[in-house]
Simulated scan of single mutants.
Amino acid sequence: MSESIAAVEAILPVSRETADRLSRYVALLKRWQPAQNLISPKTLDQIWSRHIADSAQLVALFPGALRWLDIGSGGGLPGMVTAILLAERGDGVVHCVESNQRKCAFLRTAIRETGARAVVHEGRIESVLKQWAEPVDFISARALASLDDLLDLSAPVLAQGAAAAFHKGEDFDVELAEASKSWSLDLVRHKSMIDERSSIVEIRRAERRSA
């Protein structure tokens, strides 16, 4: 098994079929990258650890979660990785919300070529989530917005009982202090398995403070 797949295997054992699906997805990311700028060019040499394994943490942390809503999906991190890992189980679904038409085209191609359990919703996050009615276990987002803004975007679905799992970097304490001015939060900060400076922030409850 290559070092690339080993980055994922270190946190979450996967079958050979899933490893093949992830490899196909990585190949697609690299193929579409020059035209779409799906990930930072500086991280291409670290794509497996920096992006794929980092995204796979969600399934490792929350193995019982089968219904995901990934907002600002972009190139599919973490949504597509979650959806590929769910394909191994044969159930579950990831709803990928993305406003950029070309990135939606990439996501649909990736779903078709990897067999990922995902559906693409093209539109602005605010518009899609305000009308959201389907039950989900978790909302996910990575490198999208500050915690305060993520809570604003996610509020309609959080109010329906969903939890959230947000990838956050070393500035999270500053973001939390700012968000806490407007929100009463029940959260758990999980240390990243990939980068000691980062976290997966689990939001179990979020209530807007009264003015």
Rank of each mutant, 00 (worst) to 15 (best):
R21E: 12
E175S: 11
V128M: 09
Q101E: 07
S49V: 13
I52L: 12
L12F: 12
A143V: 01
L147R: 09
T43N: 09
A211W: 15
R189Y: 01
L151P: 07
E202Y: 14
R89H: 06
T43M: 10
P156H: 01
L147F: 01
R189N: 08
V26C: 11
V119R: 13
F166D: 01
D152M: 12
I71Q: 00
A164G: 05
A6M: 07
L22T: 07
L77W: 13
R67F: 00
T109F: 03
K42P: 04
D137F: 05
L85A: 05
A10K: 11
L66T: 12
S40N: 14
S15Y: 12
V201N: 09
D186F: 00
A159T: 10
E9I: 12
L150N: 03
L107I: 13
V14S: 11
T18E: 12
E196M: 10
E122D: 08
P34R: 03
R124K: 13
V93A: 04
K168C: 08
V120N: 02
A10I: 06
E9W: 07
S49E: 14
F106L: 10
L86S: 01
A143L: 02
D149I: 14
Q57T: 05
G75Q: 04
D173I: 03
L22Q: 10
L38M: 06
A206F: 07
G76V: 08
D54K: 02
P34T: 03
R197T: 14
V81M: 09
L176W: 11
A105V: 08
V157P: 04
G92R: 05
A165E: 01
W48N: 05
C96V: 09
S182W: 11
T43E: 10
R124A: 12
E175T: 07
S198E: 09
E113Q: 14
S210N: 15
W132S: 00
L151R: 03
R204H: 11
S73G: 02
S4L: 14
R205T: 14
G74H: 01
G161R: 00
D45M: 09
L38T: 03
I11H: 01
L61N: 03
A155W: 05
V128H: 05
L77K: 04
C104A: 11
H167F: 09
I52G: 01
A105M: 06
K42L: 13
P135C: 02
C104H: 05
A133H: 14
P135V: 01
S192V: 08
K42A: 15
D54C: 07
E3Q: 15
E175L: 04
V201R: 02
V136Q: 01
A10G: 11
R21I: 08
I203C: 07
S146D: 10
Q160E: 14
A10C: 06
V8G: 08
I194R: 00
A162T: 03
G79K: 02
A6L: 12
K191M: 14
D152P: 02
R112K: 15
A163N: 10
C104R: 03
G161A: 06
A53M: 09
K30T: 13
E134P: 00
D186M: 04
T43S: 13
